[in-house]
């Protein structure tokens, strides 16, 4: 524990590398900003502050970084943990470890956009209200999108459902068809262990109009080592139109789901012990 704290406090991001990454990213957006509220300077400051957590606390390992080529993708991932820190870690991995770096535009619930301070901060770091129109406009501008087709069901899972993929919605596939983007499957291993599940207060969530209220023993994540696995890009079925029937679309969605499932199975085999030290 002392080692962990020591590493956390002493870990610093390579400022020169960060500067290079963000000068590249600033060039992609006019004045480093966009209409959805992205602010490259804030995103940079956030990554710089959160880097010790990424590197030393969650000891993130990224596998398959060469699978992401220099083009925009619809990044599709499993959703894990009671608090969705997986989005933050995937976003950091794509900004810091993949060439060329990119800001993944994660889709968030309207409840989050209504939160004081947090809503603005999420927007500044690249998150966007989950809406089909937002998504397609961002894709038109060449942004890679991060989606969790399991939605809230993915983060409010009980312990016996950890790493079991929930039902996928199919909207992401229709959007990929409209934009022509390939799908990049991603599996996150380690986030489920960050928040031991106690109970899901479904009726209270419904009463309060919140997407979910999963009870956990803690709301600051435990230092579980996290692995992010990127699979081979999946080409969209060009014979399908974005207005194809649900039956036709769901067939393709199942292929994506099955790819993520196999990434999870492989990832679980290589998963580190909870107290594993960082590989140096």
């Amino acid at each position: 524990m002392i080692d962990l704290l020591d590493n956390l406090l002493s870990s610093k991001i390579d400022e020169e590398k960060l500067e290079k990454i963000y000068s590249h990213l600033t060039g992609l957006y006019t004045n480093g900003k966009d209409p959805w509220g992205l602010d490259i300077d804030t995103a940079k400051a956030t990554i710089s502050k959160l880097y010790p957590f990424y590197s030393e606390y969650f000891k993130v390992r990224l596998f398959g970084k060469d699978k992401a080529l220099d083009r925009p993708y619809m990044v599709v991932s499993n959703h894990t943990g009671q608090v969705p820190i997986d989005a933050m870690l995937i976003g950091m991995a794509f900004a810091l470890e993949i060439a060329p770096p990119r800001i993944l535009r994660a889709m968030i619930d309207r409840f989050v956009t209504s939160l004081p301070f947090l809503g603005e901060w999420f927007a500044q770091t690249g998150a966007v209200l989950g809406d089909r129109q937002n998504c397609s406009k961002l894709m038109e501008r060449g942004n890679s999108i991060l989606v969790f087709p399991e939605g809230v069901q993915g983060v409010a899972k009980s312990t016996n459902e950890f790493y079991k993929l929930q039902k996928f919605t199919n909207g992401f596939y229709r959007l990929a068809l409209s934009s022509g983007f390939d799908i990049l499957p991603v599996a996150v291993i380690g986030c489920e262990e960050c928040f031991p599940f106690v109970y899901h207060l479904k009726s209270l969530a419904k009463t309060l109009g919140l997407p979910a209220i999963p009870l956990s023993t803690n709301y600051f994540p435990l230092p579980s080592p996290v692995d992010i696995h990127i699979g081979d890009p999946i080409s969209i079925n060009k014979d399908l139109s974005p207005d194809a029937t649900d039956k036709e679309i769901n067939k393709e969605v199942l292929k994506v789901k099955s790819k993520i499932r196999s990434l999870i199975t492989r990832g679980r085999k290589d998963q580190r012990e909870f107290w594993a030290k960082k590989e140096r």
């Binding site: 209409p35 959805w36 309207r110 409840f111 956009t113 209504s114 209200l129 809406d131 089909r132 129109q133 937002n134 406009k137």
Partner: peptide
């Protein structure tokens, strides 16, 4: 509104 996408048509 909180559910507004950007670029309202």
């Amino acid at each position: 509104l909180p559910g507004n996408p950007l670029f309202l048509l």
